[in-house]
């Protein structure tokens, strides 16, 4: 299967390089292994993550695009939909079969017409609008709901940290 996956990833990489969406850079770090990408995502403007540049690792399965890739932030990020180890929990990354939170409709989930670009844009919108109903990081969800000022403060720290300042 890896052959077709490789071709598709190459096509996506090319598209992401030629027409990069704003605030997103993504590609395989080491072309020896085309199935591991690193993505940099700029925190969406007008949110508490504004200005941060967050690094994430994307790991593609060998039957991509039939199965979704896995995404994991490699920097610290405090967000209701991101596990404390960095794994991202959004519906677009879930295969139609599995449903960890037991509420997602299949319409939101992975399908082969999705792409890296769409995943990353979804993640950007997830950063802008956390979904505290399906919290992956309960702590973060709680803070986000009950103590917004504290959440913003933490977010600001992560932004600063992500920039290496």
């Amino acid at each position: 299967m890896a052959g077709s996956a490789l071709k598709r990833l190459m096509a996506e990489y090319k598209q992401l390089t030629l027409n990069p969406p704003e605030g997103i850079v993504a590609g395989p770090v080491d072309e020896e292994n085309f199935f591991e990408w690193e993505a940099l995502i700029t925190g969406p403007e007008e949110t508490c993550f504004e200005g941060g540049v967050f690094a994430a690792k994307l790991t593609f399965p060998s039957d991509y695009p039939l199965s979704p890739p896995k995404m994991k932030f490699t920097c610290d990020i405090f967000h209701p939909n991101i596990y404390s180890d960095g794994r991202v929990c959004i519906s677009i990354l879930h295969a139609p079969g599995d449903d960890p939170m037991g509420y997602e409709s299949s319409a939101e989930r992975w399908s082969p017409v999705q792409s890296v670009e769409k995943i990353l844009l979804s993640v950007v919108s997830m950063l802008a609008e956390p979904n505290d109903e399906s919290a992956a990081n309960v702590d973060a969800a709680k803070t986000w709901r009950d103590n917004r000022a504290r959440f913003n403060e933490i977010a600001h720290q992560t932004v600063r940290k992500s920039l290496g300042l």
């Binding site: 969406p44 939101e108 999705q114 919108s125 802008a128 979904n131």
Partner: peptide, 21 residues
């Protein structure tokens, strides 16, 4: 950038969260 929200015209009164695509 930061178009997490869809620029839906307010007159249409529908706020869609683009979690999928």
């Amino acid at each position: 950038m930061g178009s997490g929200s869809v620029p839906v015209l307010p007159s249409q009164g529908v706020n869609l969260l683009p979690s999928l695509g």
